[in-house]
Design a protein around this nucleic acid. Sequence first.
DNA 1: AATGAATGAGCTTTCATTCAT
DNA 2: CATGAATGAAAGCTCATTCAT
Lengths: 213, 213, 213, 213
Amino acid sequence: MPTSTPVQRNPDRTRRRILQAAIKLFATHGFHAVSVDEIVGRAAVNKRMVYHYFGSKDALFEAALAEVYRRIEAIEFGAVEQGSNPREKLARLLESYFAFLDAEPEFTRLLQWENLEKGRHLTKENHLLSKNPFFTRFRAIVEDGVAAGDFRADLDVTHLMIHFIGLCFIYHSNRFSLSQSLELDLGDAAVKQRGLRQVLRLVFDGIARPARS
Amino acid sequence: MPTSTPVQRNPDRTRRRILQAAIKLFATHGFHAVSVDEIVGRAAVNKRMVYHYFGSKDALFEAALAEVYRRIEAIEFGAVEQGSNPREKLARLLESYFAFLDAEPEFTRLLQWENLEKGRHLTKENHLLSKNPFFTRFRAIVEDGVAAGDFRADLDVTHLMIHFIGLCFIYHSNRFSLSQSLELDLGDAAVKQRGLRQVLRLVFDGIARPARS
Amino acid sequence: MPTSTPVQRNPDRTRRRILQAAIKLFATHGFHAVSVDEIVGRAAVNKRMVYHYFGSKDALFEAALAEVYRRIEAIEFGAVEQGSNPREKLARLLESYFAFLDAEPEFTRLLQWENLEKGRHLTKENHLLSKNPFFTRFRAIVEDGVAAGDFRADLDVTHLMIHFIGLCFIYHSNRFSLSQSLELDLGDAAVKQRGLRQVLRLVFDGIARPARS
Amino acid sequence: MPTSTPVQRNPDRTRRRILQAAIKLFATHGFHAVSVDEIVGRAAVNKRMVYHYFGSKDALFEAALAEVYRRIEAIEFGAVEQGSNPREKLARLLESYFAFLDAEPEFTRLLQWENLEKGRHLTKENHLLSKNPFFTRFRAIVEDGVAAGDFRADLDVTHLMIHFIGLCFIYHSNRFSLSQSLELDLGDAAVKQRGLRQVLRLVFDGIARPARS
DNA sequence: AATGAATGAGCTTTCATTCAT
DNA sequence: CATGAATGAAAGCTCATTCAT
């Protein structure tokens, strides 16, 4: 005798739906402001499935974090390769990263929540330097530039990367407080573009007026 | 005969204790991860007093945010004034701000939680440009530097300030994820000092190798 | 040494303000749906005063009930006396009572809340037959009418009074459920007047078609 | 080996138990004087289930109200049909309604609480004219009586129904205040029967002494 | 694999009342 | 007489998780 109720059975689909709902909600409201009920409501699956597939709310957050981390691999680096010299390549890389943060707020925000929680859900697996194409490319380009004599030799590449990231992240991490204080909408695309252009100038040449040759 | 039940009756003290406990706990764990019970437990006051003095948990967060905002006014700017030129002054200002974020994690973290919550508790009053001595000094020094011919004239001062802040904030906002990815403890004082030194170099001169004169 | 703060002291006024606020709020929302804070808020007095003057929330309700009971004494009976016979007098009395319930919703509602609470706050003092001018007049008129041969002799005066009151009260006690069921707004003045007219007809002559003489 | 923890799992039973407890307690003490804890205590179910099945305390009250409303349909009208003429039928109907209010204090009291709360929980669904057999029968009998010449033709049937209901309800709505004022226990069965008999006489013939033929 | 009923602890908030001043 | 700070209990409701089916 066959099962009387032909319930839809689609394991992968259920898992995926839960994960997508979790990413969206955790990114928007943070871990503690989201309930498992809200997640299953949005995913339109049974609550029990969360525990079946992920084990706990914490583990689900961890999975969500790992998932968005993987999106770094999808950064479009086409423009970078087309740069004719290290300086141009680095400029394109910075632009790509800036655009990535903008296009993937779930990554940007989830990362910030996690940092504020002191990396509770950070595991060795879910984000390793080696898997991060931004990091490897960045390092390679800078070392090329130094070797070619385009960049100063006394640069600490690791800190330089931190500074690049900081110059991009600030537009998101402090967006609302700065927008109010400065009376300038940091969410506005034109404002961000103007900021990015000056970031590039700053990074390469600083603010000092070049000495007359 | 002494009073049998010496009920403490010190309005200011009670209010202050609640606020301090709230600042500490909200900064550490965020709004939603902290319960009013934990706050009153730490403050050693009756729970009802939170509502008596602040009205709601949200209003208490708002008060906590406003309180730490006021600490900006206490930034030590003595070294800034002693700089003999705009470049030196700006360097000292940057150092002061960097040190401030380090010394006041309650400010730094509360501000980040609030930004992730899209500025829910931000009011016109609790952080205004005019009351922020960092902003006003920054602007003045840069304008001086431009006028003196030390800095380039095409700078957007507002975005430049954002960039300065970004270069400092990143050591806190992304501390844990970067520490793990880069295998470098961003919480370490020496690491931060090394970073700060390169930030200054970057800001003034960029990464380009100066052209041979 | 005189008191340094010349606080307004007006005992009667404070007591009266509390009582009026209590009557209004208890009548509108009922005993349990009103908090002492709301009462003192509306009365604009200190909370402690409630306990000073009345002792407890229950005692305050009791005082409120006694106060509105006294309003029965203020029923305007002028028209009643001008009736030229018992039938006319009784009609005028019924009209007066009907108008009273309409004009004094605080009485009407407070009385209903109290009955639903099974007369918890009813004391011998606060409403006695002897003090109720409606009761005494009613009885006198009916007895006159019976003696004069206008009314039947087999009437139970007490129950008749209950029936009169019931015919008036129903427009308030079941106003909302009947309005919805009958699709007729019992709060409308014209509707109530139409009802009252038929009440009078019913009371004196019933619904039976009079036999042809 | 039997199950160690035989967790009861009977949705219908749980829902019914909550509803019955709610009806009983709300009818007795009113909405605001009853806590959800008391309801679940009486129903011997987990508090969470109230929200699982009903959503809120208010929605539970609404469900309780709708449930007792349905009891009107169970009024025993057998005697009504056996009346040999409209007058007899109407008398039997009145007796049935009077008896119903007496037998179903949960209906009677819940309805009064709800009216005092201005019909907050009244929805189109939970009590509609069409579903009320008392209303439809009443109207039919009166119209028959008028057509047969037994009743006066100038009757407003709707108001007449209100008056009937008022004559019955008053014994419950004002029971305690009247009992005290009149020094007569309106809760006593004999007293109510005596009242009902006079109600019938009043309704049909009024209080006027019939003119000598 | 999937369902939704069931749980107990905990959430933010409000309660009537009393205290020191 | 008047103030408002202080209290402990309890309010309605939500939490992450587990269970029987």
